[in-house]
């Protein structure tokens, strides 16, 4: 399911990022690689939201969150 559907406080594993190659590389550099564990820190169902990955807090735009597949 897309990351944008995950509720606050849930831990999930990243499967793929459905985005252009440049963006994929950028996200990878920030720690978002397939297989990594994410925790959703804030998802208010409007606007951007916050995830925790490799002990870093990242803000993702809602559009971005739709493109990230997790399980």
């Amino acid at each position: 399911m897309p990351l944008s559907m995950v509720n606050t406080g849930r831990r999930v594993r990243l499967l793929t990022v459905k985005a252009g190659r440049g963006l994929q590389a950028r996200l990878a550099a920030m720690g978002l690689v397939p297989g990594v564990e994410l925790e959703v820190i804030r998802n208010s169902h409007h606007g951007p939201f916050i995830v925790s990955v490799k002990d870093t807090r990242l803000v993702l735009g809602r559009g971005m969150a739709h493109k990230i597949e997790v399980e």
Partner: peptide
């Protein structure tokens, strides 16, 4: 630009 940004401590 896709909105991805680090929130530093």
């Amino acid at each position: 630009a896709p909105f991805v940004m680090e929130l530093p401590p």
